[in-house]
Amino acid sequence: MFKRVFIVFSTFGLFCSVLADGKTYPIVERDAIEEIEERGKNAEPIIKKKIEDAQNRFLNSTGEPLKPATKSYSYSIDPSYTVDRDIYYYDENTRQWKVLYPKGYKINPIDYITGFTPDIVVYNPCNKKESDFVENLIRNNPLNYMLVTTGCPVKNIKSNFQVFLLTKELKDKLKLKETVSVASIDKKNKVIVVKVYAVKGGR
């Protein structure tokens, strides 16, 4: 298919050269497929290197850093926020835009949670004591927890469960500073409760 296309273009180029002054000139063209293949071969090591670099960066990722807790404690977070502008919705009946939440309205996302939400467990799986603590914590109901890791390169994580790296956004929202931290939603009081456990024994 490609050869046919390039042959047509070569013929068209020759035709245009004839129209120009009535004379024909030799057109020296490199085989397009050869050129594409050569460029592909030249690009292969570059692409391979980029993929390897990306893989290495990921495998060495440790998530946002936290330090091990030296004492156990807990705190609550009110996730409410105030809207800084009117929030509108479209009313299908009147075919008009109406205000859903006026500027200054306070919204608590917990009010809109209807289903089950797992507790978030943040720990360092490279810390043997923390890893054992978390395994014991989730042993009976592993599906009730979401595991988030910090301080341990991905390549060194050994877990039978799906794990996530701690992001700056999650760290900031939950005001996390130490491990092991377990965050859960208290629907009755409409707050997020974070319990911090000091795991004895160090790393």
Rank of each mutant, 00 (worst) to 15 (best):
F2A: 06
K3Q: 03
K3H: 03
I7G: 12
F9P: 02
L19R: 01
A20F: 13
D21N: 15
P26M: 11
A32S: 08
A32I: 13
E35Y: 05
I36K: 08
G40I: 03
K50R: 15
E52I: 15
E52K: 15
R57Y: 13
N60E: 15
G63K: 04
P65K: 08
P68L: 07
P68M: 06
A69H: 06
K71E: 11
K71M: 07
S72L: 12
S76K: 15
I77T: 09
V83R: 07
V83N: 09
I87M: 12
Y89F: 14
Q96H: 00
W97D: 13
Y101G: 05
P102E: 05
P102V: 08
G104E: 07
I107F: 02
I107R: 03
N108A: 09
P109S: 04
T117H: 04
T117P: 02
D119F: 01
I120P: 05
Y123N: 00
P125H: 01
C126N: 09
K129L: 02
S131H: 14
N140S: 13
N141F: 11
L143V: 08
L143T: 15
N144Y: 08
N144C: 02
Y145D: 08
Y145S: 07
M146K: 15
M146V: 14
T149L: 12
T149Q: 08
T150K: 01
K155I: 13
I157M: 10
K158I: 11
S159A: 12
Q162H: 08
F164Y: 15
F164P: 03
T167Q: 00
T167A: 00
K168P: 05
L170G: 00
K171D: 05
K171P: 03
K171I: 01
D172Y: 06
K175Y: 01
S181K: 06
A183V: 02
A183Y: 00
A183L: 04
I192D: 03
V199Y: 01
G202N: 11
G202I: 08
G202R: 11
R203Q: 11
R203K: 14
